[in-house]
Design a protein around this nucleic acid. Structure first.
Ligand SMILES: [Mg+2]
Length: 784
DNA sequence: TGGTGACGGGG
DNA sequence: GTGTACGTCACCA
């Protein structure tokens, strides 16, 4: 059996860790003998007196009397030194925050904010997603864990299910009014769409109404009982919508008690106990580098697969019409969305599982965790094994101090602006991990008089002291080398997926250590370490640039660990020569790799560029406006300009596109639909301190009697005239009804030009070169 | 100029 | 859950 998920439950005021184990079926089992605890640290000769004081603490909370269960003095390590510690054991995890202050008044405390179920996995060295032999015991109708033994069998059989819902709505979907019309499911055993209008296809199941559709969906979920559920944006859409809609329809179903929607804070999370819900949208954002993260775009650019498209308005119309063909279109779209989620899950799920194994935390938690947090849990696990007390997270003031105490990061070369052909891109393999390991960079190795190992920014790191972080990092890097070797040796598809995921997971973690030490919320934070890593990195990249220049190569751009070199022609020999020269000149642990050849590219400024390869794949950085609060006309014009330049049509051709667009704007020929700006009202109208255009429009709409509230999407067009933008912004309906004229100047100066200037600035154009002033004809002539 | 507010995905 | 994003950009005050 392997661990799928864990949390804890309270019975008779005692907390039991609950483990969801999986074999052929799922088992819910509990662990009895694990108590919550924290550490106190004090002078050796004070241990007894402090122990007494702590044991004497009692406190009334909500009519209950809380007290410390037990204190046990133990030797531990803290910041690399042996200390006298007291293990303070509590009756219940929730006692810890309640009694923390009282203990803190007596002495220093540590490890007081580690969630109970996570603490359990660390202390018991129980790793998710690895087979163990579990010895279980029945007591009444509950199962308890007596013992477990690792088997190292990694070959999981995991049942997955992906789903997606479609909603019929005129504006922003609101579960109070807008019905779910279809629910699509995809598994490795079947695909299915449930709906309640008459439409025929082998994968469609028809029920009488929405309520029965949802019940049927819940039944299938329980019956199929998948280990992993994949959604795309299910955390903030599908799950909350289903949950709210079920409430509205007064559906009673046991599964609803298992669903937990967490909308507090900024990150949504939807959990369904007994199953691991993995939302692929936030993961795609984290793992892939794309300019847009729609399901469609991720499916195409990550997996190279296409699915049918369906406009929202079209879907509404087809649902209203209710014809076989129309409904089939919706059903197909719905099914394909579920299939796409399943496919993306098949590519990303194994990675999450490997991360879960390496870090030692639940798959669900890992799928929501930032990589710096994963590094932290990995370090905490190791710290426990080495009897080392984990440093505390910074309190508010210390966090602010750390945040404002900035340091110099990687070196970014000011690019040679404009268009370039034949570009070779190189990067240092694992630049920062290599530096951390080679220079033994750790918060606890700072300062010694035995080593000559001083960073370019003047911090000395001892090479003889054990470096906790570099040691762990070295293991990760070495494991990755081994796995990549295995990957080369096998052609078995399943093995390759596992190795591929393992090496990806190790890469993600290894690359997060530098950021971790410089992240102000880290427990093992060290500004000296982070700034030293960056300073060594700058030194090495400068050396590489110098070598390139000495070889007569044209260095176009560079950022931290990468170099963009102009070759003059597709000169692979020169490219190789440069790489080899760098590798033979720099220390052994540094390795420059040839990343790729690009036939064309342009640079605008630091962090803003675009390149295109021989297969016409475009990579852009910092250029594109792809947000709904930009009008279509700006987005479209920018895209055309980008393509024109990368396809080699020349900047002047691109400039002409802009002039034509602005001309059409001035002449009033631009369709209104491409001028709409969409902005969401994120709070009640009364809460606004700053009245922006969308707030004014929203007020106006509310006066007209429309249902406007926090969450409403406001779409507006800016009318011509003088004064502030907000006073000339009107909802689309009013704008059209009144026959208003749009403000060409606004759309040129605030939309089109800013968008395209991100690109054309790099070619020496100014707004004036591209803007049509009132006397168009004259200005136009100047350009030819 | 500083502060406020919105973006992302989903329908 | 022994907790609380993120970096970036536009425009109002
Ligand atoms: Mg869909």
């Amino acid at each position: 059996m392997f661990l799928l998920d864990s949390d804890y439950k309270t019975f008779n005021e005692k907390a039991y860790v609950r483990l969801i184990l999986k074999n052929d079926s799922k088992v819910e089992t509990f662990y009895k003998d694990f108590d919550p605890y924290i550490w106190a640290v004090c002078d050796e000769n004070e241990v007894e007196s402090i122990k007494k004081k702590i044991e004497g603490i009692t406190k009334e909370v909500n009519g209950k009397s809380l007290f410390i269960k037990k204190c046990m003095p133990e030797e531990r390590y803290l910041f690399g030194k042996k200390v006298s510690a007291i293990k303070i054991i509590f009756n219940h995890p929730s006692d810890v925050p309640n009694l923390r202050k009282e203990i803190e008044d007596i002495t220093e405390i540590y490890e007081y904010d580690i969630p109970f179920a996570r603490r359990f996995l660390i202390d018991k060295n129980l790793t998710p997603a690895i087979y163990y032999d579990f010895e279980l015991e029945k007591e009444g109708n509950m199962s308890f864990v007596k013992n477990f033994q690792i088997t190292n069998n990694l070959n999981l059989s995991i049942k997955v299910l992906a789903f997606d819902i479609e909603v019929y709505c005129k504006a922003k979907p609101d579960p109070k009014y807008d019905p779910i019309i279809m629910m699509g499911i995809s598994t490795n055993d079947f695909d299915k769409v449930i709906t309640y209008k008459k439409v025929t296809a082998d994968y469609i199941e028809i029920v009488d109404n929405e309520l029965l559709m949802m019940k049927r969906f819940f039944d299938i979920l329980l019956e199929y009982n998948p280990d992993i559920i994949y959604t795309y944006n299910g955390d903030s859409f599908d799950f909350p919508y289903i949950y709210e809609r079920a409430k509205k329809l007064k559906i009673n179903h046991p599964i609803l008690n298992e669903i937990k929607i967490d909308k507090r804070g900024i990150n949504d999370s939807s959990k369904i106990s007994g199953m691991v819900h993995i939302d692929l949208y936030p993961l795609s954002r984290k793992l892939l580098s794309l300019n847009k993260y729609t399901l469609e775009n991720v499916y195409l650019n990550f997996l190279g697969k296409e699915k049918t498209k369906l406009q929202l308005a079209e879907m509404d119309r087809l649902w209203e019409e209710g014809t076989q063909d129309g409904l089939l279109k919706i059903a197909l779209y719905n099914k394909e969305d579920a299939v796409a989620a399943k496919d993306i899950g098949a590519a990303i799920g194994p990675l999450e599982i490997e991360l879960s194994r390496i870090v030692g935390q639940n798959i669900f938690d890992i799928s929501k965790m930032a990589s710096s947090n994963m590094v932290e849990y990995l370090l905490m696990k190791r710290a426990f094994q080495e009897k080392t007390i984990v440093p505390n997270k910074p309190k508010g003031s210390e966090y602010l101090e750390r945040s404002s105490d900035t340091y110099e990061g990687g070196f970014v070369l000011d690019p040679q602006k404009g268009l370039h052909e034949h570009i070779a891109v190189f990067d240092f393999r694992s630049l920062y991990p290599s530096i951390i390991i080679a220079h033994n960079i750790d918060p606890n190795t700072i300062g010694c008089d035995c080593c000559n190992n001083t960073s370019p920014d003047g911090v000395n790191f001892c090479l003889n002291k054990k470096g906790f972080i570099p040691e762990i990092l070295k293991e990760l890097i070495e494991r990755r080398v081994q796995i990549k070797k295995k990957l080369k040796e096998t052609s078995d598809k399943n093995e390759r997926t596992i190795y591929q995921s393992q090496q990806w997971a190790l890469k993600i973690l290894a690359n997060s250590f530098y950021g971790y030490m410089g992240y102000p919320r880290s427990r093992w934070y060290s500004k000296e370490a982070a700034s030293s890593i960056a300073s060594w990195g700058r030194k090495y990249i400068h050396k590489a640039i110098k070598i390139a220049e000495d070889m007569g190569l044209n260095v176009l751009y560079g950022d931290t660990d990468s170099l963009f070199v102009g070759l003059g022609s597709e000169d692979m020999k020169k490219s190789k020569e440069f790489r080899d020269k760098v590798n033979s000149t720099l220390p052994d642990f540094m390795e420059l790799e040839f990343q790729g050849y690009y036939r064309r590219g342009f640079f605008v400024s630091k962090k803003r560029y675009a390149i295109i390869d021989k297969e016409n794949n475009i990579t852009t950085k910092g250029l594109e406006v792809v947000r709904r609060d930009w009008a279509d006309i700006a987005k479209k014009t920018q895209e055309e300009v980008l393509k024109a330049i990368l396809e080699g049509k020349g900047p002047e051709y691109a400039a002409e596109i802009v002039r034509k667009t602005t001309q059409e704007l001035i002449e009033g020929k631009t369709p209104l639909d491409s001028l709409i700006i969409y902005t969401q009202l994120t709070m009640p109208l009364s809460s606004y301190k700053q009245i922006g255009p969308h707030v004014v429009v929203a007020r106006h709409m509310k006066e007209k009697g429309e249902d406007i509230k926090a969450g409403s999407m406001i779409s507006f067009i800016v009318k011509n005239g003088d004064g502030m933008i907000r006073d000339r912004s009107y909802d689309v309906e009013t704008f059209k009804n009144e026959g208003y004229k749009y403000d060409a100047e606004y759309y040129i100066d605030n939309q089109v030009l800013p968008a395209i200037m991100r690109i054309l600035k790099g070619f020496g154009y100014t707004e004036e070169n591209l803007r049509f002033s009132k006397n168009i004809q004259k200005t136009l002539g100047d350009y030819f």
